[in-house]
Structure formats: C-alpha cells, structure tokens
Design a protein around this nucleic acid. Structure first.
Lengths: 352, 352
DNA sequence: TATTTCTACGCAAACGATGCCGATAACGAT
DNA sequence: ATCGTTATCGGCATCGTTTGCGTAGAAATA
C-alpha cells in the first residue's frame, strides 16, 4: 500500500552503497561533493524522509514523550498540554496523550502501554483514584524519566511542577472571609491527592488565622474527582441540608466547581445570595457564567512548559540525574460575582 | 540508563536461540511444552515486553494514528478525541494528537511530521486557514489512509464523517424565526470550510422558506475561526452598528459563540432582549452561562468513534479501498434562554 | 536394517539507518 | 620502487523481532 522511499532505494538507483548515501545525506566530509550533490538531489526529488522508526530502533529512543492526565476536556489540562506541546515540538519531540478519566486502572494500563519503550519519558498528573503508585515506582527505579505536574506524589524523587496550591487556597478563603462570609464549606477531590491536601491546608490555615473554627461537616471529599456526578451532587445536597448551612463554598477543582454550580441551580439556590462560590478554575468561560465565577487561576500553560523542559533535560542528560527540583508557580485570584460581598439581613433591613 | 529485557537476553539466559524464544512466547506448536513453560515463566519473572519499535520496523506499521485538529481546548474536539481514543485503544492503536491552532502552516508541519511513517493513518479536521490541501493530496495519492471528520474537503475521495450541518443550521434558524426573530444575522468561520458552507446553506434556506429576504450585511465571516479575537470583535461590532440592527445572531461555531457573547456583554447589549443568540456548541457549560445558551449540539463523541472505525478499517484492509462512505450524523437543538421568545414592544405595551 | 516421518530447535535474512573498519586508487615523499 | 597519506567509498554488524528454511535426533514404518 503506502510505500516510501528508503536509503536503500537511493543507493540502488544511484549505484552506491547505503552507507555512502547515508553519509552524503548527513553532509559527511568524506563524500565527494559530486556524489553528495547527486544523492541530495535524488533524495529531494523523491521526497526522501528518514524512517523515524528505524532511527528509534538504532538510537534506542523514540523522540516522543507520553502525557498521562485525567482528561483533556478540562481547561486546566488542555492549556497545560498546549504548553507541553509548544516545548516538545521545539525540541523535536512528539507528544502522545492518554487520559485516565480519573480511573486507577486506566492509568496503569496507559502507563504500561506508553512506557514499554514507545516513549522516552512521561509527564504525569495522577488520577483521583490513584492512591498507590507502584506502577510509576517500578519505572522510576529502572531509570525511566518521569516528571510529575499538578497532582504529584512525594513517594518518588524526581522533578515536579506545581501551582502554589496552599497560597491559592489560602487567598481564596481569605477573599471569601473579606467579603463577609464566615461559614465557608470546602468541596474537594480525593483526599490523598497532593492538590487536595495542599488546598485543604490553605483553607484551614486561612480560617485559623481569622479565628474561625473549622466545622468538619463543611468539608466534603469526592473520591472520583467529580467524574461521578452523583457523588458531587450528594455532597452539595448534604451541605445545603445542614441545619447550619454554609454561606460560601470553596471548591478545589474545575469540574467540581462547575458541577456544584449546576447542582445549586437545580436546587434553586442562588449564588451568591444564598451561598457564595469560589473555585479553582482555568475556564475562560468563568466571566460569562451566571453568576460570573470567582476563581483561583493556575498558570497551566507555564506548568506544561516547565514540566516538559525538565523532562527533556532528564531524557537528554548523559549521566543519571540525581538532583531534582520542585518548581512552584504562582496562582492568581480572580474575583467576580459568585463571591460578591455578602449582604447581611441586618444591612438589608437597614437599607429598607 | 533505562534498559529493558529483550528476547535475546532470555535466549542467552536459557541457552536457547532467539527464534525459539520468540516462538515459545507466541505459543507456537513446534516448541515443546517444557521449553514453552520455561520461557514464559522467565519472561514473566523479568517482565518482558516486546519492543514495539522493533515490531513496527518489521511489520512496517506503528499501530498508532495521528489526529490533526485545530485545538483540543474546545469541547467539540475534546469530546471527539474521547471517541477516537475509545475505539483506538480497543483496537490496539496509540493516538497522537496535534493542534494546528487554525494555522495552515502548522497544519502542514504537523501532517508532515506525523505522516513520515510514524503513524499508520490520519484523522483530520481542517484548520480555518486551510484553503488548499496539497499536503493531504500528496499523501492520499500515495495510498496513505486518511479520514476527514467535521471540516472535510470534497477534493479528496476518502471516508468522511460529518454532522448534518445543513439541517442543524436550518433548524436553528427556524427556531429563531419561530421565537419571533426576523432580522437574523449569521456569524461564520472561514467561508471555504465545509462546515461554513453547509451551515450557511441551512441558514439561507430556512430564511427563504420563511420568505425572509437575506440581508448580506448580516453575514460575517471570520477567516481565523475566532482565534484572533479582534476579528470576531470587529464583526460583532459592525453588526450591532448597523442602522438596521439584527435582532438575533446565529453563530456557526463554539469559539465564535462564546466570544460573541463576551463582546456583547462588553458592549452592554443584553441577550436575548436586545439580540438573541444561538450557536453551534458542545460545551456542557451552556446551561450555566448568562444567559444560558441555546445551541446546536453535535454528536462529537460518536463522530470521533465512527471516523476512527473507518480509518482503522482502511489501515487494516488487505487491498486498496476504493469505495468510500460519507457518514452524516444528526445534530440536536437545545433551546435555552439566549433565544427565548421575542418580546415585541407592542406586546409589551399590551401587557402593560 | 534401511527409510521415512515427526519433533523440536537453530540459522540467517529482513525491516531502515548508522558507524566502525577496511579497501582501493591516486598521489607525493623518500 | 616502496611506503605513507588522503580521499572516497563499500562491507558488515547492529538495534529487537519474526519467519522461512534447514537439520539433528528420535520415533515410526517398511
């Protein structure tokens, strides 16, 4: 069917050996300029392209990197992937993306599939279900290059790239407090994820610094990261069914935030009048939503870029890398209507 | 650095030849069951995985397919990719995604990169800038498997998968008319794109069927598909600066619709009171937007699935495929607030 | 016993490209 | 005339795997 020209074809056609052709194409000095010219012209005429697979086999590298994320239909990750792609292409690498859909099993399968020597390294953000990481440890112990970003693990020593989740969550919580909210709930993903822990810490510390006691009933985890709608729905409902309802919700992820808003809408609970909402989100649609969404925005593109730079550095390093960095990038608080200043009933009656 | 076990290692360790090991692992009947058992146990113990690159070289196929789309940070495409992935993985293929960002040049580079024998076939949705397709023709003429989806071309005969853009646009326009709008503008992507033409036809026909003359000033094209914000902004502004303003906008793409809403918001034009809005969109956020967004929804996931099935069929077909299908999938009209029934001034005064 | 038939395995080529080592010829130096 | 040098090219092995063919030894048949 589809047959492309090889170095052998050129050699045969020109009455040369394959080695001569190979050298001529790479501009070796030990080939006469006449021969070089002839070979190069012939190659161009027939649009010769070296077979990357043969090269991979010979050089024992594929010049491609694998990406393992939970899903690409999420603005944070699609922006991160844009960053990954921009660096990868510049440095001559292909990018192979795989989605775990927050499932541990699919993550394992994808990693196995990618790592069995078809990629030179892995860029990983863990799935919500993943609570043990033997599949990565095995690879890492064998010297396989891995860089974690966003949802990282401290069980593996390698380069990592994260947003400052602690500070982002702290600032978001503080912002809600400053806007007059005191009963702030926290909606989070799986509790074992690094991002969940860090954001939880930021949330708790901000409350503590403001001398607001933590109400454990206000803290809800979704072990499937919002991939199962019911889980999230139940969490929001149980929150809003409390005798002492929260007056604000700080949600720790994009999918969570959006679904939460959806549930609130269904329940007829208005935002921010009945309950304020603030989340981690990278959706450009935040300002078009009803109400427009306050959010902690992560530097997704830069995270992807940085992680890719680090990964390729490991891949191309001559000796085994032993010193690893954890890069922390800053977040940005975007305040919009969903966390508008609280209008207390007192104030309202005063106005009246 | 990272070294994995090969068939050669097993052969040496067990005092066998590589061919025997190879056959034993594939369960050949001409290997004694003792030897087979020994080999298989050894392979499992050392976690042997065949080198996919060596296999690719031998079988002259990589078991991977390339995807060329304008961007993944677009719900239509990320859903389509989910469909692509689901079929591809089931049939044992990797998926390599590349984004053109609506740029012709980047599309060409990506296609060259992918097709130079690192993928077995291509799944393509053309970029907005692409108005000639020699880069695909060259490949297709050589017998390289390509399937187009969404934004297709009729200059190449191969399998194609599209939504029923004509009917979708017709129904959307009819819906706007039924809701009381008569001065309906149409905001479209590059005019040479198949989707643009089909949607334009649906729009024009619906108007004609309702005996509404087409006002050419109401038709605006964005040659960069909305990737350049100013282009879209200018289009919307010039529309709303007309003496005879439109009372509704039918926009032909997700990015266009969202950006349009944004511009309208900036201009202080309220939807649907001042102008109604309806678009093609697959964003699940439509119902959370302000106002909630009426839209034509495409079966993105199914389109991805179908296109992938067709592509793999071509790839795995023994003889050259000469009969090609164009699969047309149905769209769905979702009506929400942005196209709510028009409240005419007359009616309003009557109510008063 | 001699011949055929299995059984169970090894050898080598092939996929495409590269790189080490050699080979050859022309040429100048001794 | 002999040797060393240089320029230019070819042979061969290699990466990891599969596969057609060959064959040694054992078993079965004549």
């Amino acid at each position: 069917m589809y047959e492309a020209i090889t170095i052998k074809d050129i050699a045969k056609a020109l009455g040369l050996s394959t080695s001569t052709v190979s050298r001529a194409l790479r501009g070796s000095h030990e080939i006469s300029s006449d021969t070089k010219k002839m070979v190069i012209e012939y190659a161009e005429q027939f649009n010769y392209r070296p077979n990357p697979i043969a090269l991979s086999l010979k050089e024992r590298r594929s010049r491609s990197i694998g990406v393992v994320v939970c899903e690409i239909a999420n603005n944070f990750f699609s922006q991160a992937i844009n960053g990954i792609e921009s660096v990868a292409y510049n440095r001559g690498y292909h990018v192979i993306i795989s989605q775990s859909h927050e499932s541990y099993e699919r993550e394992v399968v994808n990693v196995e599939h990618l790592a069995s020597r078809s990629v030179d390294g892995l860029l990983v953000s863990l799935s919500a279900e993943t609570d043990h990481i033997e599949h990565f440890k095995k690879l890492h112990d064998k010297g396989f290059p891995i860089v974690f970003f966003d949802r990282i693990t401290d069980e593996i020593e390698t380069h990592k790239v994260v947003a400052d989740n602690y500070k982002g969550a702290y600032n978001a919580t503080q912002h809600l407090i400053d806007a007059g909210y005191k009963k702030i709930a926290h909606l989070s993903s799986a509790p074992h994820l690094s991002i969940s822990k860090e954001r939880m810490n930021g949330y708790r510390t901000a409350l503590a610094d403001n001398k607001i006691p933590v109400n454990e009933a206000y803290i809800k985890n979704c072990n499937h990261g919002g991939m199962i709608f019911k889980e999230l729905e139940d969490a929001v409902k149980s929150l809003m069914n409390l005798k002492d309802k929260p007056d604000a919700i700080f949600s720790a992820g994009d999918r969570l935030t959006v679904s939460c808003l959806q549930v609130l809408k269904t329940l007829g609970i208005s935002v921010p009048e009945d309950v304020a909402l603030m989340g981690f989100s990278n959706s450009p649609l935040g300002e078009l939503m009803n109400p427009s969404l306050s959010a902690v925005k992560q530097p997704a593109f830069e995270m992807g870029q940085t992680a890719t730079e680090l990964l390729i550095n490991i891949i191309e390093s001559k000796r085994a890398v032993t010193e690893f960095d954890t890069i922390v990038l800053q977040t940005e608080i975007i305040t919009r209507d969903s966390s508008a200043k609280k209008i207390t009933k007192k104030k309202e009656s005063v106005v009246k």
